[in-house]
Each structure stands twice: as structure tokens, then as C-alpha cells.
Amino acid sequence: MTASASSQTSVSRWRRYRPDQQWEAYLFLLPSFAGFLIFVAIPVVASLALSFYNWNLLSPPEFAGLENYSQLLTNDRVFRKVLFNTFYFIVTIVPLQLAFGLLLAVALNQGMRGLEIYRLIYFMPVVTTIVAAALVFQWFFNRDFGILAAAIWELAAETGLPIRPPDWLNDPDWAKPAVVILTLWKNTGFTMVIYLAALQGVPTELYDAAKVDGASPWQRFRFVTFPMVSPTTFFLMVIQMIGAFQLFSEAFVMTQGGPAQATLTIVYYIYQMAFEFQRMGRGAAVAWVLFIFIFIFTLVQTRLQRRWVHYEAGGES
């Protein structure tokens, strides 16, 4: 290609940059980089700095040292509740969503008719505005006139079983499951579609070989399908966990964080601190705690993946 191929180092140095492209490259980068600096990089640093101050936007900021963090960790009962709620959502939503998504994908991957129409229906909630979805579910869960409660009353009347519909949104024990159901309805289609793509990449020979060896459908799932899609499972686990950490709109619209703060989440708490109580510093501290949690959890999952994620030889990792 070039005359300097004889000297490896000069080629690589030449490749690294070209003086004539220097300024040109900076021009190409300028719009993106200016935005990146102003709306991402500087705010990240500013938010960290802010978390060491108390500031209500009216009086000048006061330096508070680590007080915002120490208050959160030792003195803030609501924050403890908030953390508990968020972890509750993570440990329920993530596994259920993966299980349902994989189940649906396996079902749709059987070479049946109607794949497109099923996909259309199951994916529909994914494109739905969450505010509208949360409103409908609030009405759906209504104890007196909601359709879910009515179905349960009917079932009780038909079978004579002593069951009563829970007061979903006014009972602290039931509000969380209500949020979980809304989230599953909203997001399972996404998980399903990603799994479907992964399943379609599994070579059919593997199933044929397993069949020849007399593997049952369950064994074929357990020893062929599951390991083959494990990189996808890992990917989905990480992004769904990050998503569950950031749960906000569902609770904000459907339950307003209640009853008795049963559905108050970390992001909801940031919102409350900053925009309802005007405590910018405390809000920033909560945001940093969120970031640290996400960082640690992602790191742990990445470490643990070696034990169970199966990568094809030569495949990307």
C-alpha cells in the first residue's frame, strides 16, 4: 500500500495521526465535544462537588463536607426504605423479565405460523409512553371499579373460594407487586425480541445432535439453548438491572411513591430532594450513591459471568 512498508514503526506512527488531518478532525469533533463538555463532563464533576454542599438555590451554597453522605447512610430512615424498595424491584423485575422473555422467545422460535403477529402484540407496550401505561394500570388496579378486581371477585363467587382482590395501590404490601407487574408488561417484549435474535443464531445442528443422543426437550433447553444464549442473558441482566436501578416514571405516575413510601425509589428520591425540597446537594449525593451502586453491581456481574456465561471459541466476549 505505502512505500514505507519496510519499516514497521514508521508505518504505525504515520497511522496514528496525520498533521494535515489534525485541525480537520477537531472541527468534526467540535459540535459533539462542546456538548459533551458542557452537558456531560462538567456536570459530572459539578455534581460531585455539589454533593459536598448544601444549596437551596436561593441562599449561597454552604460547604457541608461529607454530611450529605453521612446523613444518608446513618440518619435517613426514608433513604433506607428507598434502598430496600429499589433492591426489591431489582430482585423481582430482573429475573422475572428474563424468564418471561426467554420463555416467549423459545415459544415463538418453534417455527410456527403467526410469529409476526405475536411479536407485534408482545412488543407493543415497549413503544408505549410510560405515563399513559402507568395511568391505565392505576385504573386497572382500582379496587372498586377496576377490571382486575372484578375478575377476582367473579372468580371468588364462581368457586366459593375465600379470596378478595387486594387494594393494590393503597396497601404498602401490594403496591410494589403492582409496579412490578406494570414493568413486566411494559418491558418483557424487549427482552423477548433480543432473546429471539439470539435463538435464531443457535445452529440447528446442535439440536439435531442432541436429538440423536436422545435428549429430552428439557435437556435440549438446559444443555443447548441455555448455554448458547448465556451471553445474551448476561447482557440483558446487566442492562435490565441498570434499568431497574433507575425506576422512576412507573412509581411517579401510578403510585406517587406511596403508599407510605412503599414505591419510593432512588431516582424518585433524587427528584424529591432536588425538585420538591430544593436540596440540590443532598440530591446530588443520592445520585452519586446510585452511580456507585450501579458501578459496583455491574463490576460484580462482569466478574461472575466467567462462571456461567458460555462464549463460542473465537466469538466476541
Binding site: 456531560v40 456536570p43 455539589l50 433507575q246 431516582v267 433524587i270 432536588a274 452511580f291 458501578f295
Partner: peptide
């Protein structure tokens, strides 16, 4: 990897 919520408050102030 940094969630939007970290930059949200400084962006609001800006």
C-alpha cells in the same frame, strides 16, 4: 456508564 441522573441536577442549574 454514568447515569443521566448524576448530571441532571447540574444541568437543571445550568
Amino acid at each position: 456508564m454514568i447515569p443521566f441522573h448524576v448530571t441532571m441536577i447540574p444541568n437543571f442549574i445550568l
